[in-house]
Computed example of a mutant assay.
Amino acid sequence: MTSPDGDLDDKARVTIRCQDNSSVGMTFCDRFSFDQDSVHYTVEARAPGLTARVTEVVAWIWDNDLTTFLEELAADYRGWEGERTWHTMDRDLAVSAVCRSGGYIGLTWTIRPWRSAAGDWNTSVTTWLEAGEQMSSFAADIRHFLAWERAAHPSVDDLPPGR
């Protein structure tokens, strides 16, 4: 299940929860931009005993974006063979998708801090959604989140400390 938690402002967030276990999920939040070429955001992975967060994941306008990947999965709701994958240019966010009988899509989300970050860790969680309406709804929520209008972006001077 997915939920767009907020309006088009700096408090907007999208959460995807696993249909099999609602305590497993991913949240996309804290978006901002330095220019019209990109949107930066934070991803948080949750599962029993796990909370992990990676900040400043970047969606570039010229990149094969997450939205396109998710929309293609939604369009193939009847299923496919094997695994499909996508990742950001910096590989701080990656997702692989598989189909399960009965019309479900498993999305395994892997997050890791930038290569220069101390600790060199990564973690993954898997969320399961219905291949039809739930997948389409999630893709639309992510499109809305990443297509944040430039006019709504805070300037760099307005960012919270530490950004």
Rank of each mutant, 00 (worst) to 15 (best):
P4H: 12
D5S: 12
D5H: 07
D7T: 03
L8G: 09
D10A: 05
R17K: 15
C18I: 00
Q19M: 10
Q19A: 14
V24T: 03
M26W: 04
F28H: 09
F34G: 13
F34R: 14
H40D: 04
A47Q: 03
L50K: 03
A52M: 07
T55L: 12
W62F: 09
L66N: 13
T68S: 08
E72Q: 12
L73P: 03
A75G: 11
D76G: 11
G79M: 02
W80F: 15
E81N: 08
E83Y: 01
E83N: 09
T85I: 02
A94D: 09
V95R: 07
S96N: 02
V98M: 14
R100Y: 01
R100V: 02
S101P: 00
G102Y: 12
G103Q: 04
I105L: 14
L107K: 07
L107P: 02
W109N: 05
R112T: 02
R112F: 01
R112K: 06
R115Q: 09
G119H: 10
N122S: 14
S124R: 13
S124Q: 14
S124E: 11
V125S: 11
T127E: 10
E133Q: 12
S136M: 03
S136W: 05
F138Q: 01
I142G: 11
I142T: 11
R143W: 04
R143V: 03
F145M: 04
R150N: 05
A151E: 11
V156I: 04
V156P: 01
D157A: 10
L159C: 00
L159P: 00
